[in-house]
Computed example of a mutant assay.
Amino acid sequence: MSPLSGRNKPDAQGEDPASEDRDYSVRAVERVCSILNLVQESVDGVTLNAVAKTTQLPKSSAFRYLWTLENHRYVERDSENGLFRLGLGFVGMQSRHLEVLRERARPWLEKLRDEYDETTNLGILDGDHVIYLDIVESKRTVRLAVSNGHRDPLHSTALGKAIAAHLPEERVRALLEQAGMPARTPRTLTGVDEYLAELVRVRERGYAVDDGENEPDGRCVAVPVLGTRLPAAISLSAPASRFPVRKIEPVARGLREVVEQIAAAPEAPEPPDED
C-alpha cells in the first residue's frame, strides 16, 4: 500500500487529516532549540551544568551539543569563566535587531556630534572586520569620516578594540589569524600578544583608543554597547590636531553615558532637550 493511501491520504488542500494527532518533532533538534533558547535568554551566559539540566542530558552529551554549536559559531565559550553565550553566527540573521540598534543609537550619535563637533560612529563586528552601521559626520570642512557600510580592520580601530575586548580570547585569535594584522600606519599594533594586552587595558578603563593606528592623523575613542546581544560599539573620531590626548577621558565618559541609554531603552530613545 502506498504511504499516501487510506485514511492518511492528504485532502484536496494538501492537508493530512491525521497530522494533528502526530508528533513530528526530532529529539535532537528539540535539544538544540532548548539550548539556544536558554543561551539567548541569559545576558551573562550559561554554564554547562545549566545546559545539561535543561536538556536532561549527561554533561558529556551536553558538551558535545555545545561543541558542535560552537564549531558553527552559534555559541561561543568565555575562556575565563567557562560560560556559553550566543555566537557571531547569528549576527547575519539579526537584520531587524541591527535596525533597532541603529534607530536607538542615531539620536544619541547626533547629540554627541553636536556636543563635540566631531564625527560619531556606530559599528558592529561582521566576520573578521568592523562594519559601520551608522555615521553622523562632523559639520566641519575637515573631518574624519567614512561611509555607511565601510569595513575597517579589527586590530587597528578603536571600534574593533572595544568590540574585541568583550569576545573570548580564542575567538579574537581566530579572527586576527583570518584577517591578518597589517600595519596601517607606523603606530599599528601588529602582534597578537601585544594586541591582547591592549584589550586587557581596554576592559580595565572601559574604552578603546585608536591613536594614529588606522589613519596617520586620526584619533578615535570607542565604547562597547553591552547588553544588546550584538558585538557593537560607538565611537567619536577626529583629526588628532583637534582631538588632543587630554580630551580622550572626558569624551569616553560621554560615550559611556550614551551607551547606557542605548542598551537600556526598549524603543528608540530620544535624547534630552538642550537647555
Rank of each mutant, 00 (worst) to 15 (best):
P58V: 04
P58G: 04
P58T: 04
K59H: 11
K59S: 13
S60P: 05
S61R: 04
A62N: 12
A62L: 07
A62G: 11
F63V: 06
R64G: 05
R64H: 04
Y65R: 04
L66S: 02
L66R: 08
L66W: 04
L66V: 07
W67Y: 11
T68W: 15
T68D: 15
T68C: 11
T68F: 12
T68L: 15
T68N: 14
L69P: 08
L69A: 10
L69S: 01
L69T: 06
L69Q: 07
E70N: 12
E70F: 00
E70D: 08
E70V: 02
E70L: 03
N71K: 09
N71S: 15
N71T: 08
H72F: 08
H72N: 05
H72K: 07
H72L: 15
R73T: 03
R73I: 02
V75P: 01
V75H: 03
V75L: 05
V75T: 05
E76S: 10
E76F: 03
E76D: 11
R77E: 01
R77L: 03
R77G: 01
R77Q: 06
D78L: 04
D78E: 15
D78S: 10
S79K: 08
S79A: 05
S79R: 08
E80R: 13
N81A: 14
N81D: 15
G82I: 05
G82F: 03
L83V: 02
L83M: 13
L83D: 13
L83A: 12
L83C: 10
F84D: 07
F84R: 05
F84W: 10
R85D: 09
R85F: 08
R85Y: 03
L86Q: 12
L86P: 02
G87L: 00
G87T: 00
G87W: 00
L88N: 10
L88T: 13
G89H: 04
F90S: 03
V91H: 02
V91R: 02
V91S: 00
V91F: 00
G92V: 06
G92H: 03
G92Y: 02
G92K: 02
G92F: 01
G92L: 06
G92S: 14
M93D: 05
Q94C: 05
Q94V: 00
Q94P: 01
S95I: 10
S95K: 15
S95E: 15
R96D: 14
R96S: 11
R96P: 08
H97Q: 15
L98T: 11
L98P: 02
E99D: 09
E99G: 03
V100L: 08
V100D: 09
V100R: 01
V100N: 06
V100S: 07
L101V: 03
L101R: 00
L101W: 00
E103W: 03
R104W: 11
A105N: 07
A105G: 05
R106V: 12
R106A: 13
P107T: 07
W108K: 05
L109P: 01
L109A: 00
E110K: 13
K111F: 09
K111W: 13
L112A: 10
R113P: 06
R113A: 11
D114W: 03
D114E: 09
D114I: 01
E115A: 12
E115H: 14
Y116D: 07
Y116S: 08
D117R: 14
D117N: 09
